[in-house]
Amino acid sequence: MFLSDARDYQILILASFLFLGILTRDWTVQPQFIFAAIASCVLTQLSLTFFLDFVKGKKEPDFGLNRVRVKSYQKFRSLAIGGLRSAAITGLGLSLLLRTNDYNTMALAGCLAIASKFFLRVENKHFFNPANFGIIAVLILTNNAWVSPGQWGTDWWYLLLFIGLGGIILKKVGRWDTSAVFLIVYAGLEALRNFWLGWDLQVWQHQLSSGSLLLFALFMLTDPRSIPNARSSRIIWAIAIALVTFILRDYFYISTAIFWALFFISPLTILCDRIWQAPRFNWQILESKKLIYW
């Protein structure tokens, strides 16, 4: 059922941001690129789900993944639908953030993003945010991809919109702590630097009212499947990302600092989960209390 899953809200919200950006923010995103991003994510998701299911089917029992076995049609259906939602979110995320002038680059980002979810796993949990992984992968592997941090500007009503809609999602998935800690620590570090340099308050305000920063903190940083499970570890994890972002941005002058910071800190999720144990996040349990799959 549509809207039975928090991810449906996320799909609606991200799609509306995409339209908003294209209609009001003068973006040069073409529909073909959005199609390339979403199609590559969805196709990779479907083919890998099918392939891995096929491989596992041959080798009973199922890799000790502790899955509940149900009838194979039902199982595949639920896997496919759940996976498609996630793939659509990754595809929309890439369309919102990644800019390129080659469809292949966009498709590569989509494929690698989804593939990272299947292959970069520890104890059956992926630790990279798929869209972030896709972005960093094409920034490294190709020379025709970029991210535009200035694309949203600093208009206040966008900020309010992001906070409002971000709040809805965070309330549903219960990961507001991560966004809040990241924003507070990052704002604090920038405030200290500004104070030390002697810049006036306006500079600080301007730095923090960046739409891109807020969108990242509210929507990308809070992917409940790839970030640490326990609240205390999420807090430490968010502080680490804020610190690395601050260093990369202000001392290495990297305009895409937030994405690199998340990329570098993501593997820490494994360590955090070992130290602080907590039940893993599950989209379906969250909404319908039915135990099915990822």
Partner: peptide, 13 residues
């Protein structure tokens, strides 16, 4: 309020 920061992109549009 802030100095201008730039980045080079591959955008050849």
């Amino acid at each position: 309020p802030e100095d201008l920061s730039f980045q080079q992109t591959a955008n050849t549009q």
